[in-house]
Design a protein around this nucleic acid. Structure first.
Lengths: 231, 231
DNA sequence: ACAGAGTTTGTACGGTGTGCAGGAGAGTTC
DNA sequence: GAACTCTCCTGCACACCGTACAAACTCTGT
């Protein structure tokens, strides 16, 4: 604790009607209901019942709101699950990857905001730290662990980004089976003469958004990491 | 050619002052100069010298402009380079990955637009088709080739997305060395007591955005694909 | 010459993020 | 208790966004 001083120090002026978290709550619910466009400053302010510019008392600008929101979502992942060193490391990576995917795709509108910014907050760093620990446990040298951690992050966020990019309407993601069926219908329109292989692989491609494909890719990456730990 | 009919059929009414390509040119240049926000319908119209709503003669809405622009950029990659079956397949995948990265990061503002939509146009399909061919040449069964193709696409677009997300100002990407130096400076501020591993790996992490790291990750993925081609 | 289709423009509406001036509440100091 | 000061919230305003509508103009087919 680098701040031992006054936690209960009352500020001057009138008490705040809101907290930063109230604003983030409103932003997140708007994001979930209406997509990225719905999470406007005016919308947030209306939801918490203040004038639009009152938001600027809590955050300097809208970018700060989304930054804080991203941090909060990243903080929701349970670090203990994959910090448990008694479990095999592959299992722990898998648990982390699944956890991240579940948490992030629960808020599809927020995914675009994450990959739109640098993702360099404390929670992002903490996550990276855990990943480095985990890969060190796997026997990777520090430099390789760092590279591998980035590779995994790219895979996780890239997967989720492409996944949510495929759904057109805002709101919560439909069930997996439903989305796959929709993609299957879309891929059926692929002209087989122009794209023979794509057309033949349509069924597999429709399943790109499935947990199964997600794990398949993850396993291939983990395989690649162990077959050649060196540079 | 499924359209043998009249290519020179003159429409009624006055001749168009522009072409669709003029609009895409303007959109792309604005995107490159001022980032995603600068590519507004009004900005595009001003650049080509018409009223804002004249754009709607050529495209139904802004989303269609973005979609066409994405398709055009995807069409810029030279398919012949990695369609040459005499070269080893790993080399061809590498060439494709590098080509894509170069083309896409030449227009950083466009990257967000790509992963914001479904990426299901003809050029995207053609790219996928080539990748499937390539992976079939590598000896993968069709279903595995499809999965592997998606894995590679996720990696390529995920990498580039995270890469451009790190640069704050719009405009063309700075040189690689310059960006790495900037990241190094940023990572130096990481508190070593809270994040010991991240702090120790700062130098490696600063290089995340390098071509070297990009290829390292790609090679790990390719290793993972060959060590276990089956499900 | 005329009709009609197609292109462009002016105007306008509702939305966005955000700066500025002023008013109201709550602590601090006399 | 009065005065001061600091903070929060508000109303208003600006510049911008995407885009719908109707009018004006230009060209082609008859």
């Amino acid at each position: 604790m680098p701040v031992p001083a006054p936690p209960t120090e009352r500020r001057r002026g009138p008490r705040r009607a809101l907290t930063e978290d109230d604003i983030l709550d409103a932003a997140l619910s708007l994001l979930d209901e209406g997509g990225a466009d719905a999470a406007s400053v005016r919308g947030i302010a209306a939801r918490v019942g203040v004038a639009p510019n009152a938001v600027y008392t809590y955050f300097p600008d809208k970018a700060a709101v989304v930054k804080a929101l991203v941090e909060r979502l990243l903080g929701e992942v349970d670090h203990d699950v994959f910090a448990d060193r008694s479990r095999p490391w592959r299992e722990r990576v898998e648990a982390l990857a699944l956890d991240l995917r579940q948490h992030l795709s629960a808020h599809p509108g927020a995914v675009g905001l994450m990959i739109g910014g640098p993702m360099d907050g404390p929670q992002a760093l903490a996550l990276n730290e855990r990943l480095l620990e985990l890969l060190a446990d796997a026997g990777l040298a520090p430099a390789d662990a760092a590279r591998a951690s980035y590779l995994l992050i790219v895979y996780v966020f890239g997967s989720i980004a492409l996944e949510v990019a495929d759904v057109h309407e805002p709101g919560p993601l439909p069930a997996e089976a439903q989305r796959i069926a929709g993609r299957q219908a879309a891929f059926a329109a692929t002209p087989p003469d122009a794209y023979p292989r794509s057309s033949a692989a349509a069924t597999t491609m429709a399943g790109y958004i499935s947990t199964e494909q997600y794990l398949w890719g993850l396993h291939r990456i983990l395989d690649g990491l162990v077959t050649r730990g060196g540079a």
